[in-house]
């Protein structure tokens, strides 16, 4: 009997201690994550005034409006295309660079620094540089095109090319991060596995497919997940390079949210889009984990 009471007391006091340890992160998450999240969910069900205060409860009307709006459909299309352009190419590029930089040759440190250096550039600064490079009159890309006698392009002003142009600059910005993580993953692979392969005499391609990629799969999975989420949420480069234009061709959802909330002052509508984006990312991530479970080999 006595023991039981004791046990209960210990459980209760250790629960208190546990909560105490959790308190800082619960507070942080609560203020900056959970509260805004629920507020957004709440606001998405209202018509709001220009200050963003809820005026009238409208149920799912904001969502209905969105699904019928062609501009929202353009946004979704732009967002999905943007993910499609940036993620696969970005990761394959980072992987190739990481594989190259993982070789032990003299001076490799220089290349490792170079390849990862984009991590140190802010999105804003790199966007400005890319904007100069895309400039039709003075930008380097058009100089190159004219040098090899190709017609010059209106990189950021042509609706057919604007999204691709933004995607290219985004790939460049994200490569450093993906490269660094993938390189770390490669260096974590036990060298003995490769030595055994050398004694067995397997070829480079076989080694890549049967040792490197499977052993790297947890890292790859992480990079893919983070990249997809990052691509869904890209904002800075779009704001600086195109401002969502031309003809809404680069108006990805995050940018549309920004415009609706802070330019059109329709916070309810913006919130509804934010909620949709949230579920969209959630869905993709869950899907990924389901696929990942079967394909990823954790040690």
């Amino acid at each position: 009997m006595k023991r039981k009471i004791n046990k209960k007391r210990i459980t209760r006091s250790s629960f208190g201690a546990g909560m105490l340890y959790l308190l800082p992160s619960i507070l942080l998450f609560g203020i900056f994550l959970f509260y805004p999240m629920f507020k957004t969910l709440y606001l998405s069900l209202f018509w709001t005034d220009t200050q963003g205060n809820p005026v009238q409860y409208v149920g799912l009307e904001n969502f209905m409006y969105l699904f019928e709006s062609p501009s929202f459909m353009t946004s979704i299309k732009a967002t999905l295309l943007f993910v499609l352009y940036t993620v696969p190419v970005g990761i394959v590029l980072a992987l190739i660079l990481a594989l190259l930089a993982n070789e032990n040759v003299k001076g490799i440190g220089f290349f490792r620094t170079m390849f990862s250096s984009t991590i140190g550039m802010s999105v804003a600064a790199s966007s400005v540089i890319w904007m100069l490079m895309y400039n039709p009159a003075i930008g380097i890309f058009n100089k190159i095109l004219s040098a090899i006698h190709l017609p010059e392009l209106q990189w950021l002003l042509d609706p057919d090319y604007a999204l691709i142009s933004v995607a290219i600059s985004t790939i460049w910005m994200n490569t450093g991060f993906s490269f660094l993580i993938l390189l770390g993953g490669l260096q974590n692979i036990d060298e003995r596995l490769y030595e055994n392969a050398r004694i067995a005499g397997v070829g480079t391609w076989y080694k890549l497919r049967n040792i490197t990629l499977p052993m790297l799969s947890p890292t790859l999975f992480f990079v893919v997940t983070v990249s997809i989420i990052g691509a869904f949420q890209s904002f800075g480069q779009i704001d600086i390079l195109t401002g969502g234009g031309p003809m809404e061709s680069t108006n990805v959802i995050v940018y549309a949210i920004y415009k609706d909330a802070f330019i059109n002052y329709d916070v309810g509508l913006a919130s509804a889009q934010a909620v949709l984006l949230f579920f969209c990312i959630l869905f993709v991530t869950i899907l990924q984990f389901k696929i990942g479970e079967r394909r990823v080999h954790y040690q």
Binding site: R192, E195, N196, R198, I199, G201, M215, H297
Partner: peptide, 18 residues
């Protein structure tokens, strides 16, 4: 290594976990 016609066993076994 593979031209020497030998096999090797490593201390940590170096098995492929996947």
């Amino acid at each position: 290594p593979h031209e020497r016609n030998l096999s090797m066993v490593f201390q940590n076994y170096a098995l492929y976990p996947h």
